[in-house]
Nucleic acid binder design. Structure first.
Lengths: 186, 186, 186, 186
DNA sequence: GATGAATGAGGATTCATTCAT
DNA sequence: AATGAATGAATCCTCATTCAT
């Protein structure tokens, strides 16, 4: 499938670095065939990213709907996120792309991204209502959570992360996030 | 100055999107003149980013050295950061760049970035020693802080941030961060 | 054919003087089309030269295999060579090229050239065995022969060669070469 | 001296490969200074080559005027030529240059080159008159001699010449040439 | 004499896109 | 449904040359 090849390439490199020819080669097709299915590189990219976000969204939703405390669900998401090769955070994708995509394409991607945030938001809100957490602005909380996940992807010049294992990293992130969320209960 | 024009362009667009000609035009010079001063686009970019980080670093250091509680210093930094047009977080810059810069250029940029993180780290560590904060891993804390600042830059599809003013945003971020930092004291 | 246009240009001018655009225009195509068939100017050049040498080689072989005395065969080659627009001697081509071609490309060209020399060498060697000529070092003889052919291309400032007709020139060259080859028999 | 640096560079590389900046750097000067002395790259090149030919001419004349048999003088010239880093044969220089030099500049270079050929020519003619050699066309003979010298510069793909030492090479070349010159006496 | 700064013109190469088959 | 061939427009980079100082 074309999208499969495209996802891998766009994740590994940036929009500009990946040529349509690269995608074609990775998919064992020719450029012209790609254009048979997608009217432009921009649209191929859009579809690719939307599919990617949708996939992450599904996976995240799956975890969020489990019947366990929010904190544990967040820990699972963090681990899944840190293990995956790709980043939930799509801002950088957007950034390098603004001038290449149409309004509508950007909107589609932002819409998909918002769905993802909203899922996390809602889980936090529901937990808040059940007194599981305090009632901090849930939009903010969702974004804070995703932002903190990025810390787990940081590597210094020697290629080392801050903590030795992803498990530890996930725990530290969720600990930190949880404290930020809940002033009184630790 | 060439760097001035370059900074603005590289911040607004990405490495690949900005052509040397764009920079030349913005600086009211010709491409060839740019190449008179910088041997390649990659080196122009490197110098630009290093200068930018150095500038942010200086500004951040200025605030960090004030003789007021850490929390207030962090608030000032947050406000300064959210007001500025540029982002402390340079990971996305790095990402789209790995294949275009030499090892040495990447290292120079990473080094400059690390200095910046270390400044924040040290401030947190010192505050921790003075019992101002708990002794969480300071590297993690510094990265968490910078990551949270990014939340302040989020805009939804309508172009609105999560909170109406940057002051509020800065406060919410620092509140959240502070709680994450200090389990016991609120 | 692209190679046809390229041969003419590279023969008339040097590697550096001929731009890919020139070749494209001569072939009634665009630069990009040239790059569709050849990955670089260097490879286009290499293919061009190899094809040229191969063609000369074939033509020379054709003459060498005739069942007439060596001296007559050499005369025919000389006439063919002096009539053609191009020069068997490719050293000057090589010279201006060393810094532009890859090791492998240079090797390919040298290999083709060697084949050509070896064909002449072998003809001389065989004639030597049949007592048709003395046993001078045949490699040296082949190179001497080709070097002498160059004299036929010399033009003074007024554009005149040393002898009025190519036939005379060819005869003088082969006479001279033959004496050089055979000390005793004239 | 500028010319000194220029000669070395133009001999090692070709006209197009050597930039005025290269010459400037080699002479420890700036480009602008070169232009203070020479109105253009073409004129710098012309002066360089003329000076070079003049130098070779002088050296060759020195040998030609010795009071020893022509054959020995030719042997000396051959050895000097094969030892030097540069080639008496300037055709390749001319070739890559035709489109860059003015008529007048080309003429100057050709004139210098002709002087050199004429010197050899005359020596051959005089020897012919003294019955030292037969009366072959002396212009042809001079060019044949220079052409044969080129064989001494040939290197195969492994970098080896045809004969192991330059002395042997010079002897073989002069032997061959001498036989070509003199049908009856060996 | 010498140079730093600036530039116009060109040149190699890439790439998204088109189109006839 | 798939592709080979072709191209226009950009993009990075080089370099001979000029000129004010």
């Amino acid at each position: 499938m074309i999208l499969q090849a495209a996802i891998e390439l766009f994740l590994a490199h940036s929009y500009q670095e990946v040529s349509v020819d690269d995608v074609a080669k990775a998919a064992n097709l020719t450029k012209a065939t790609i254009y048979y299915y997608y009217p432009s590189k921009a649209s191929l990219f859009t579809e690719t990213i939307v599919q990617l976000i949708t996939r992450i969204h599904g996976q995240t939703q799956g975890i969020l709907q489990k019947d366990i405390p929010l904190r544990e669900r967040l820990l699972e998401i963090a681990e899944a996120h840190l293990t995956a090769t790709f980043n939930i955070d799509l801002d950088s994708f957007m950034r390098e792309t603004k001038n290449n995509l149409s309004e509508e394409q950007i909107t589609r991607m932002q819409h998909a991204e918002e769905q993802l945030y909203k899922a996390i938001e809602q889980a936090i809100r529901e937990a808040g209502e059940k007194k599981e957490t305090s009632s901090i602005d849930s939009t903010f909380a969702a974004h804070a959570y995703v932002a903190l996940l990025r810390v787990g992807n940081y590597r210094n010049r020697n290629g080392n992360g801050i903590f030795p294992t992803t498990t530890q990293t996930a725990e530290q992130i969720v600990d930190f996030f949880w404290r930020g969320l809940n002033p009184e209960k630790v």
